[in-house]
């Protein structure tokens, strides 16, 4: 019983649940926006990276290795307190930008890997049947690419959610900040951090759930096609 009272006091009492909820919203907001922008940027980077022209290829390669090789916290601090300090952008916008850039590098490599895993012979076959370049990509490569990239993309999303836990350094109160604030206020670090872990885990499982549903739906569709 005593533990229950403690949990209630830490996570729910006096509007604490609302504060936690706000923290979760901020984390989800940054993650979703960064995922959306990062995926678009990543696709663009991948396009450049696979270009036949060496100039854009080199540029994309440089970007990817720079972004993938540097800790995202350094990138975040550098953007917020350095490069964009005078730009008047809100901390949230800078966070979304930093995480988009970081995610884009991972997504670019992920797409490149997935394209390499598809059979180029199929594209050649489609081209010889009179498909345009774009049609061959859209109708032959893309559906396979999506299926191959899906498991990796899922782990990228889960990673992204966890990376956002450093935004406290640029004056954003996200879930991690709420957890630390609460731990200091209640002086109950163990149970507060454990609770925070459960919340992050729940978010990750939501992502897993969505992907499991997509897989299940594909299987259903394949089943009806086969029959």
């Amino acid at each position: 019983m005593e533990e229950l009272t403690l949990i209630h006091r830490i996570f729910f009492a006096e509007g604490a649940w609302l504060t936690f909820g706000k923290g979760i919203l901020v984390t989800v907001e940054i993650s979703l926006l960064a995922l959306f922008l990062g995926t678009l940027l990543g696709a663009g980077l991948c396009f450049l990276r696979m270009s036949h022209n060496p100039l854009p290829r080199l540029f994309a390669r440089g970007c990817i290795s720079l972004l993938r090789g540097s800790p995202v916290l350094m990138l975040l601090m550098l953007l917020f307190y350095g490069v964009l300090a005078g730009s008047g952008l809100s901390p949230l916008a800078v966070a979304v930008l930093a995480f988009s850039l970081h995610t884009s590098a991972h997504v670019a490599e992920l797409i490149r890997g997935a394209i390499a895993a598809t059979d180029y012979g199929e594209v050649e076959a489609a081209r010889s049947l009179g498909f345009s370049k774009w049609q061959a990509f859209r109708l032959v490569t893309l559906p396979q690419l999506i299926r191959i990239a899906r498991p990796m993309y899922q782990s990228t999303i889960v990673n992204l959610i966890q990376w956002t836990s450093v935004v406290g350094y640029i004056t954003i109160t996200d879930l991690t900040r709420v957890i630390y604030n609460t731990a200091s206020r209640t002086m109950q670090p163990m149970i507060t951090i454990l609770g925070g872990m459960v919340i992050y885990l729940a978010m990750s499982y939501c992502v897993y759930g969505i992907f499991a549903y997509l897989d299940w739906r594909d299987k259903q569709r394949d089943g009806t096609l086969g029959a």
Partner: peptide, 13 residues
């Protein structure tokens, strides 16, 4: 928010 009671964040944020 890391040095109660001098500097802390209340339950309402």
């Amino acid at each position: 928010g890391d040095l109660p009671p001098l500097d802390l964040v209340l339950a309402d944020g």
